[in-house]
Every structure is written in structure tokens, then in C-alpha cells.
């Protein structure tokens, strides 16, 4: 019996079809809508309106700041955790890692809803009333809670792959713990940091489910803005989406998301 042989190119077809219909064509549609007006004439009107409207620029800036704060907090929490997990000789460190990653397996709307209820409970306690109206705090908290596993995992995998003999060499040559950390751990875990930052920073700019549910819909980030515009003005909505896309593209490029370096070692999930 003749076994049908698939060349690499044939095997690519399903994915190529997928790419064309669900990535490339939608992208072109967005570009088309962004540069046309309501009568479908080519126009730069949306572009000009976007960059001359302080509300839209502010929203982008706000989203950037929220995303930045979220990323920094995630990094500050995740780095020690990943470091300890990767370096310790604990027997059950897999269990601890699982404890951080496990929430990822539960639907995230469910988790945010649970968090909302938790905040409700806390804000009904004495002395915690401020919580009910601190919408930005709750939004950032929700984002951190939501994206923390995405920071821990890449950090953990890169640190696990740092050769322990490097630490020994460093100690041999008389470096103290701090120097070892700054000269060996941090540089070698850089790919992990970069991919963690990318994986937290980008979604937290647009994840408006969190800001809607925890911020009482009083916090508007760019994702919500786009969704609102798509209710009535697809052209402006597309323009905002396009600007966001460019921001994302630039920040991915800056954090090295497109490099295919060898020392990435699988951290770029």
C-alpha cells in the first residue's frame, strides 16, 4: 500500500488558510476601515481626529500607565518566587509552582468575579470602606492577580536553565551574593524577563473585563474604548485599534520579541 507523503509545504496549508482568513484578512479590513469615512471614501479624518482628541490620547496614556504599574508589580512579585523555586532544592517545588499556575486553569471571568465578591466582602468590613470607591486600585490588583502566572512561568523556566556551575565559578572568584545576582542571575534571566513583561504588559493594556468588573465601569482603558467605538463607529474604532497595534508592535520589538536568539531557551512562550 502506498503511504501518501506530505511535503512540508502541504502540511502548512491548514495553518496558511487559517492565517489568511483569521489574521491577514481581518487585519486588512481594520486598516481599510481606519482610513475610510462613513461613506467609505478614503480619508485621513480618523487619524487626525484621533491625534487631536485629548480624550483618546489620555486613554492610551492611562492604559500604558496601568499596564506599566501592573507589569512592575508582577515582576517584583514573580522574580523572587521564580528565583527561589528555581534555586532551592525543595522536594515539592513543583507543588508550589502549581499553586501559582493552577488559577490559570480556571476561567478568568470566574476568577475576576470571585475577586469582585471578595472586595465586596472586605469593603463591608469596618475601616475598609475606602475599597469600594478605589476603582483604579482594584483594577490594578485584578490585573496583577490575573497575569502573575504569565510572569512566573517564563522566569522560572529561564532560571532553571542557568548552569549552577556559573554560580560556583562566581563564588570561586570571590563574588558575593549580590554581585552574583547582578552579574549572573539577572543577565541570564533577561530573556525570561522580556517575555514575561511582554506577556503581562500587552494584555493588561486591553483587558477591559477586569476594569469593568472591578473598576465599576468607571475605569476606561483602551480596550474598552475600542469596544465602545465598535458599537457605533467602526472607522474610529479601527483607527484606535490600529494605533494600539503599532504601540504593541513597537514595544514587542523593543523587548526583543522578534529575535530568534539561542539563549532564549524556550522562555518566549
Amino acid at each position: 500500500m502506498k503511504i501518501p507523503r506530505f511535503s512540508r509545504k502541504t502540511l502548512c496549508i491548514p495553518y496558511a488558510v487559517f492565517l489568511i482568513f483569521f489574521v491577514i484578512i481581518p487585519m486588512l479590513v481594520i486598516v481599510f476601515y481606519a482610513f475610510t469615512d462613513k461613506n467609505m471614501h478614503i480619508s485621513l479624518g480618523n487619524f487626525i481626529r484621533f491625534f487631536s482628541d485629548p480624550t483618546k490620547l489620555s486613554t492610551i496614556v492611562y492604559s500604558l500607565v496601568i499596564a506599566l504599574i501592573t507589569t512592575v508589580i508582577c515582576l517584583l512579585i514573580a522574580y523572587p518566587v521564580a528565583y527561589i523555586l528555581a534555586r532551592s532544592k525543595m522536594k515539592r517545588k513543583f507543588v508550589i509552582l502549581m499553586l501559582f499556575v493552577l488559577p490559570m486553569w480556571i476561567n478568568f471571568v470566574l476568577r475576576v468575579n470571585a475577586l469582585r465578591e471578595l472586595f465586596n466582602l472586605l469593603s463591608s468590613l469596618g475601616g475598609m470602606e475606602w475599597l469600594a470607591s478605589s476603582n483604579y486600585f482594584k483594577t490594578v490588583f485584578g490585573m496583577v492577580y490575573d497575569f502573575l502566572p504569565f510572569m512566573i512561568l517564563p522566569l522560572y523556566t529561564t532560571m532553571l536553565k542557568i548552569d549552577p556551575s556559573l554560580y560556583e565559578a562566581s563564588a570561586d572568584l570571590g563574588a558575593n551574593g549580590f554581585t552574583t545576582f547582578t552579574r549572573i542571575t539577572v543577565p541570564l534571566s533577561m530573556p525570561g524577563i522580556m517575555s514575561g513583561v511582554t506577556m503581562v504588559f500587552l494584555p493588561s493594556m486591553t483587558n477591559y473585563v477586569v476594569s469593568d468588573m472591578l473598576g465599576n465601569a468607571k475605569v476606561t482603558i483602551i480596550g474598552k474604548f475600542i469596544s465602545d467605538y465598535f458599537g457605533n463607529d467602526w472607522h474610529m474604532g479601527s483607527m484606535i485599534a490600529l494605533v494600539l497595534l503599532i504601540v504593541v508592535f513597537v514595544s514587542t520589538w523593543l523587548t526583543g520579541g522578534f529575535k530568534s536568539e539561542e539563549n532564549v531557551r524556550g522562555a518566549n512562550l
Partner: peptide
């Protein structure tokens, strides 16, 4: 436009 000004924080 009014609604987006209300919902967003204008800096």
C-alpha cells in the same frame, strides 16, 4: 464623543 469624554479620564 461626549460619552467617551465622560467615560475616559481626560488628562
Amino acid at each position: 464623543e461626549l460619552w467617551s469624554r465622560v467615560k475616559a479620564e481626560t488628562l
